[in-house]
Design a binder for these strands. Structure first.
Lengths: 226, 226
DNA sequence: CGACACCATAATGTATACAATATACACGTC
DNA sequence: GACGTGTATATTGTATACATTATGGTGTCG
C-alpha cells in the first residue's frame, strides 16, 4: 500500500512543512523579507497553527527566517555581510567534514561518490539547476554519513541551507558559476575518495575560499554592503 | 514600577524555561539520559505544555536534549565521542571569533575585558565554580558583541552550552582544570585586546586544542569511548 | 513453557479556543 | 495643524481538549 507508506512518511508535519518552506525560500519563490504569518501558512497547507509554529522554529534555527517576539516572522534578509559570515564559517567546517569523510573506510564510498559525480555532470549537461542542487545536497549527505560526526552535521545543516540561497541567486545572475561549483564539488569528492584526510581538508578549504571570492562581487552588486 | 519591568522581561516563557533547564543540565542537576516529559516540566514550572514544547525545541537545537518522534525527549548522553566532536568544531570557530573580536576597534573593548578578567580571577580565588562559569559565558558574549558576526554567534551558541557540560564535569573530577581554563581565557582576552587578529586566532586555536587534550583522559575515564 | 495478539495506559502530536499585545487609525485637545 | 490618547483589529502567545501512537502487561493459543 503505497499511500499508507506516504502517509507514514509524512507523519512529521512540522519537519515536512519546514522542508517545503525551505525550498520556497531557497529558490526565491518566497522572497527575502516577506512576512510569514502563522495563520497564512497554516491555511495554505491545510493544518493548524501548532505544527506551523514548530516548523517556523526549525526555519529560525537554520537562519532562514528571523523572528521578533510578538511581532512576527520574516524571511531573513540577504546581504553581503551575511554571505561573508556564512562562507567564513563554512571554510573550516566543510574542511573538517571532508577530512573525516576521507578518513572513513566505508566499503561503498567510491561507488556512492561515482554515482553522485555522474548525477552532477548530468544535471550540468542538461543545465538543470534544480537537479544540480538536489545532487549537491545529496553529496553533503554522503559526507555526513561517512564522517559520522553528528555535531558537525548539526552545525553545517544550519549553514548550508542559507548558503544555498546565495548560491542559487549567484547561478541566476551568472550561470557560469554552476560550472565552477560542479568542478569544485567533483574535485572535493575525488580527494575524499583518495583517502588522504589532510589533503582533502586543505583542498576543500581552498576551493570554498576561491568560490567565495568569485561569488562575492555579484553578491555585492545585488545586495550592497549590508 | 519595578515589578512591571520584571514582568516585561520574563514575558518570553519558552526562552526562560530553556535557560533554566539548560542550567540544570549543564550543572548536572538533571542527569544525562534522564527523560523529560512535557507534562512534568509544565507542571513543575506551572505553565501549559505549549511553551514547554517550544523550550524543548530550543534545547534540542543546542544539542542538550535528543528527541525521538512520538517517543519522547531525553537529556543528551555524554560520551568521549561527543566531547571530541564538540572540541574539534570549537577550535576553528573560537579562533574565528577571537580574530574578529581582535580586529574590532570598539572604544570600551579594553575596559570590558579588564573587568571580565578581574571577575574571573575573583571567582578562581574564591574557588566559586558557578561564578567562574558565569563570567566565562559573559566573556563569550563580549567576543560576540565585538565580532558582530551573527552567524558565528548562532553556531557557537549551539556548541558552548554542550561544552560547558563537559567542562563542569571535568572541573568536578579535577579542580586543577579550572586553573588552566582561567589562564587560557585570560591569555585569549589579552590577545584580543592587543588587536592582532591573526595572533589572537592562532593562540585561541592552540589553547583550545591543548585543553581539549588535557581534558580528554578524564572524559575517557568517565564515559568510555562512546 | 513460549510466542503472539490484544488491550490499557501514558505520552506525544494536533486542533481549537482564549489571552495578551503590537499596530494603525480616528478622534479630540492644545 | 500637530501631537497625544484611546480604541479597533490583526497576530502572536498560551491553555486546553482531542487524536494518534508507542509500550508494557495480560491472556490465550499452540
Amino acid at each position: 500500500m503505497i499511500l499508507a507508506r506516504i502517509q507514514k512518511l509524512s507523519v512529521a508535519i512540522p519537519e515536512n512543512l519546514a522542508e517545503m518552506l525551505e525550498e520556497e525560500i531557497i529558490f526565491g519563490r518566497i522572497k527575502s523579507q516577506e512576512r510569514l504569518t502563522e495563520e497564512m501558512v497554516a491555511e495554505r497547507y491545510g493544518v493548524s497553527r501548532s505544527p506551523v509554529r514548530e516548523a517556523l522554529r526549525l526555519l529560525e534555527r537554520d537562519g532562514l527566517v528571523v523572528r521578533e517576539a510578538r511581532r512576527g516572522i520574516w524571511v531573513s534578509p540577504m546581504s553581503q555581510r551575511d554571505f561573508d559570515e556564512i562562507y567564513m564559517c563554512r571554510i573550516p567546517l566543510e574542511g573538517l567534514i571532508a577530512r573525516q569523510a576521507a578518513e572513513s573506510d566505508h566499503p561503498d564510498k567510491r561507488a556512492e561518490y561515482d554515482t553522485l559525480i555522474a548525477d552532477l555532470k548530468e544535471a550540468q549537461a542538461k543545465n538543470d539547476v534544480r537537479q544540480f542542487f538536489i545532487a549537491d545536497v545529496r553529496g553533503s549527505f554522503i559526507h555526513y554519513t561517512l564522517a559520522q560526526n553528528k555535531t558537525l552535521m548539526r552545525l553545517l545543516a544550519g549553514l548550508e541551507k542559507q548558503a544555498l540561497r546565495y548560491r542559487f541567486h549567484a547561478y541566476e545572475q551568472n550561470p557560469k558559476i554552476i560550472q565552477l561549483s560542479l568542478e569544485d564539488t567533483t574535485r572535493i569528492c575525488e580527494a575524499i575518495i583518495e583517502g588522504d584526510g589532510e589533503a582533502a581538508q586543505k583542498l576543500t578549504e581552498k576551493l570554498i575560499h576561491e568560490i567565495w571570492q568569485t561569488m562575492r562581487t555579484g553578491i555585492l552588486d545585488s545586495f550592497g554592503r549590508g
